[in-house]
Simulated scan of single mutants.
Amino acid sequence: MNNQTNVPHEPASSPRARVLSPAFAALTWRRFLLAHSPEIRPALRVGFGLAIPGAILMLIGHTDLMVYAVFGSVVGMYGRSQHRLQRLKDQLLAGAMMLCAGVSGIILAPWGLDGWALVAGGIFWASASSLTADRYGLKPGGSFFPVFAFGALASLPVEQAPSLGGLAAFTLTALIGVILGQTARFGSTAQDPFGHDPIPWPDALRRATCYACVVLLAGALGIGLQFDHLQWVIAGSVVPLAAGNARGRLSRGVHRVAGTVAGLVVLLGIYYLQLPDLALALAIILLMFPTEGYMTRNYGLALSFFTPLIMLMLELADPSVNAEVLWERALGNLLGVLAGILGALIFDRKPR
């Protein structure tokens, strides 16, 4: 007598059987990897765009200029068109935009720009770079990088004259980014393969106005709450606006906060090692690779690398930075993100 219990088998075509099948599991895993894996080619292009001038700065003993090189390397993030001519046009335009924002910050740094003067500069570059990116279809869109470059470089403690060494590092790194952009090759999965998707003037002007209003709101809140590092509030406020609707802005803001918190944990681990300046400069270069690799795949994960990168580069430029300053910057960033989400709901309700 057979005492075994007969267990009915799932039909091969049933939903449960398909879910449990090895082929389905392999396909699901492949989709997950594609959704969250870094983009290798752009990451290498931007990473080496910082590694080359960064190595030069380390060899000549000027790791304090690494902050200028980092902002110059941002030019490499623009221009992913498969067509080299279009890619060159995009990178030259982005390079001009970044250089104008950064150079204005470098020139104004000896005056110790702060308060409403810093807010006014942030308003100008937020609206101007938004208008430029929209009208010429630059990717990544939005105003974050030009606004942050202006605010960070304008707030650096310098002598009575602008940093000529910083200006040279900034310009050289941007030029290297353009050259590497012309040597790069992108496959069929390249983002924005035609490289150009301009937005009509009325919509571009509306969005630029929204950026200006949001920076004004964030700046007023930062001044009212007496934040000493107002540039972090301003830079954080423009992050959510890159998304096209309320849900996207909230998601981008949450990613920004989560990535910043995770990045601070990474930063504390680096501080625990008590690395010398040369090792910190090398860490900055290495952090640029995953930052760009995940920027379009997983924004929150990218920021977990970008946050310690920017904190370290600013520390090399200003050794007086301590833990209290770092936390105040993080809180300023959080306030800016909240102001950006609130300002977008008030000033730009129309979804894009």
Rank of each mutant, 00 (worst) to 15 (best):
M1H: 14
F347K: 05
V239L: 09
S104I: 10
A43K: 07
T173F: 09
S81P: 14
F306L: 11
L99V: 12
A246W: 12
Q274W: 07
G222V: 04
L335S: 11
N3M: 14
L205H: 04
L280F: 05
F150D: 06
R247H: 10
R329M: 05
L92Y: 08
V214W: 00
V257W: 15
R206K: 09
M313A: 03
H229G: 08
S143N: 06
L241Q: 04
R297T: 00
A25Q: 15
G248A: 04
L314Q: 13
T171I: 12
A169L: 11
S21I: 06
A117M: 07
L113G: 00
T132K: 08
V67D: 00
L118K: 06
N322P: 15
G187V: 00
K350P: 12
L131V: 01
L250A: 09
A109W: 05
P110D: 06
F186E: 04
M58Q: 09
L268R: 11
L301Y: 03
V337L: 12
R87G: 06
V265F: 12
N3A: 12
Y271M: 11
H62P: 04
V74W: 02
I123G: 08
F32H: 08
L131D: 08
A258C: 15
R84C: 14
I341P: 04
M1V: 08
T5Q: 15
F289C: 08
G102P: 09
S73H: 01
Q231A: 03
A243I: 03
A17S: 11
E315V: 07
G187K: 04
S104D: 12
A154P: 09
L138I: 00
K350L: 15
L221K: 11
S251R: 11
I341K: 09
L221G: 08
L85W: 15
R45W: 01
V178I: 11
P276D: 05
A184V: 10
W232A: 02
F148D: 01
G343E: 01
Q191I: 02
D203S: 14
R247W: 07
G177K: 00
A220Q: 13
R84W: 15
G181E: 11
G95V: 03
L164Q: 12
L59A: 10
V70L: 11
T209R: 15
R349S: 06
V239N: 05
A330D: 00
N2V: 02
A35K: 12
Q160Y: 08
V70H: 03
A323T: 10
S127Y: 14
H62L: 05
L331G: 08
S13G: 12
G293D: 01
N6G: 12
A246G: 10
I285A: 03
L138P: 04
E292G: 00
I234E: 03
A204L: 10
P200T: 00
R30W: 09
W232K: 07
E159A: 14
V178Q: 06
N333R: 09
A243D: 07
G151S: 05
F227H: 08
L280C: 05
V257C: 14
F194Q: 15
E328L: 12
V46D: 01
G219A: 06
R256S: 13
A149G: 06
L180R: 04
